[in-house]
Design a protein around this nucleic acid. Structure first.
Lengths: 225, 225
DNA sequence: GAGTGCCTATGACACTGTTACAGAGCCGGA
DNA sequence: TCCGGCTCTGTAACAGTGTCATAGGCACTC
């Protein structure tokens, strides 16, 4: 027992300079940054300890010296991405518009970095990823007059709407086995449904618009005008 | 080339009797049923080909003779569970109440069989799992006066609401690494938020109630009274 | 009895996360 | 100058995973 778990605490910034002539200069932050880059480039499945080690031209145990486990690495990757996403501009003049804008920031950035979003989703760290943007959303809710449990409830309802739409938007239809894609299901279904409805259900939805509409509905319900 | 992929088509029911004295009588349906049972008992992670083979007192290749791959097995498990979930009673007199009841059936059955729901979620087969209940929902939407794209849009918005709440309800907080749980995040956050709001965000939400409220909001917006 | 198909076990391959161990390179002190 | 110790890294391995090539057994038909 001795080594690992180093630098789990915060103070790891000022010593970056004096440690100049270490070995390879490989730092925890470098590993996390490389991991995030790898995920963004080649998807969540590419984030393998060996693969990441190869990317850094290093052995796998080296990574384990800086990071306790893959789970912790993933959490750190999500944390980094979360901080990069912070501080997005919120537009609008009315309270509802500003809340919508703040919520929309979560959606757009999740879609733009879908690989990282999927990774967070798979590892149950979505709340970590969205935390900064969620804080901005809560601030707008308070500005709209909601405080305490009301603000929490509205915030959660809004995020439920977004993450539900993300589930649909991020799933990989090409990876699902034949016969389990929605359009096939509706095509072979014998439910007593109008042909027009069936056709509508078979077409790929415009999730960007659908997400916006559902979001509006939630905001109109929870945020006072 | 020869064997596998057997019985991928439908006609596999009437020959169940005449094949009485085969070998062990192990059938594709038995494997799928055992897999579903295993998942319900010990969670999605327990569904391993070797584990399932041991459960059936059989070698792994035997499973691969009946089933092409793990993905196909999972799809079949979800399909089985979906058919078991079908035909749940819908209550209510008004159109909106009946739509709410149909949508609520998806929620309650997903929560009751959370292991299977998680499995479907992880493998991107959620639409397969919910398909029968979704069909019932669409029928109620048509009864409420929505047809074609309108019905499809309302159906999707409602399912977005439910699956979003399920994402929150099914995540395993104990598995997430320290520092990434929502209550910790809000405790350490320095966002300019009222203390009451922060406290509310730190408490575990009543997702059952929250899901119902958000669902009501969506229905009120999409389904005419 | 011989042959043909259906079904099954043995054993292996490539891959994953993780770690025990041995050893480099640099630091401070004697 | 040497030397111990700390920090970091490579080699090799363990226990898992999904998947498959191969060989064989069983029940049936001719």
């Amino acid at each position: 027992m001795c080594n690992r778990m180093a630098r789990t605490a915060a103070p790891s910034d000022q010593d970056a300079a004096e440690r100049s002539g270490r070995r390879t200069g490989l730092e925890r932050d470098d590993i996390v940054a490389a991991a995030l880059d790898l995920v963004e480039r080649e998807g969540p499945a590419a984030l393998t300890m060996r693969r990441l080690a190869t990317e850094l031209d290093v052995g796998t145990p080296t990574i384990y010296w800086h990071v306790a486990s893959r789970d912790e690495l993933v959490a750190e990757v999500i944390r980094l991405q979360s901080s990069r996403l912070a501080e997005q501009p919120i537009t609008g003049t009315t309270a509802r518009d500003r809340v919508f804008s703040a919520a929309r920031n979560v959606w757009t950035s999740s879609i733009e970095h879908r690989a990282t979003t999927s990774l967070a989703h798979q590892t149950g760290t979505s709340s970590l990823l969205a935390h900064h943007l969620e804080a901005a959303l809560v601030m707008e809710l308070e500005a709209a007059g909601l405080v305490g449990p009301d603000a929490a409830e509205a915030s959660r309802a809004i995020l439920i709407t977004i993450s539900g739409a993300l589930v649909l938007a991020l799933r990989d239809l090409s990876a699902s086995p034949p016969g389990s894609r929605p359009d096939e299901l509706w095509a072979t279904s014998n439910a007593p449904i109008a042909a027009a409805t069936r056709d509508a259900l078979r077409t790929e939805p415009d999730l960007d618009a659908l997400s916006a509409i559902t979001l509006r509905a939630a905001i109109d319900h929870f945020v006072p005008a």
